[in-house]
């Protein structure tokens, strides 16, 4: 695996405190050679976008389990665009019903990973997307 020089922001929008998934992914991406910025719990859209901007990341991974994704993700995507960061690859994971996937993809979230997705699959997805 060659995650070399790929910089990823793992962010938890919303108020839920379940960061097991976010941390496992952060660790997995690090072990695949990526530089992972982890911002911790309870991040507002503004904080996430500012971090993405200042850190100049290639990828943002959003993890949310509270169910507030449909409220918060559009705000994040809008603010990313406003900041001129629409070229960042945005991925999501957590408790997100199938029926919401289409809508989220339409606002620019490239892929939604279900709980239980192997880390390798996520690493490969990122590498493939960035290589294009």
């Amino acid at each position: 695996m060659t995650g070399k020089n790929i910089k990823v922001l793992i962010a938890k929008p919303g108020l839920d405190g379940h960061d097991r998934g976010a941390k496992v992914i952060a660790r997995g991406l690090k072990e695949a050679g990526m530089e992972v910025v982890y911002t911790g719990l309870r991040q507002t859209p503004a904080q996430i976008v500012r971090a993405a901007l200042q850190e100049d990341v290639d990828v943002i991974g959003l993890s949310i389990l509270s169910g507030a994704h449909q409220e918060l993700f559009p705000v994040i995507m809008d603010e990313l665009e406003e900041a001129g960061l629409e070229d960042i690859l945005v991925l999501a994971g957590g408790t997100i019903p199938d029926s919401d996937h289409q809508e989220l993809k339409e606002i620019g979230i490239k892929e939604i990973f279900k709980p239980g997705t192997p880390i390798k699959e996520i690493v490969e997805f990122i590498e493939k997307e960035l290589a294009e």
Partner: peptide
């Protein structure tokens, strides 16, 4: 979640979370 974290429903961080879980 806002209640669990001691925020009123009208605090900015509560956005999208009110009455959800």
């Amino acid at each position: 979640l806002p209640t669990q974290i001691g925020y009123d429903s009208d605090q900015p961080l509560a956005r999208g979370e009110v009455g959800r879980v």
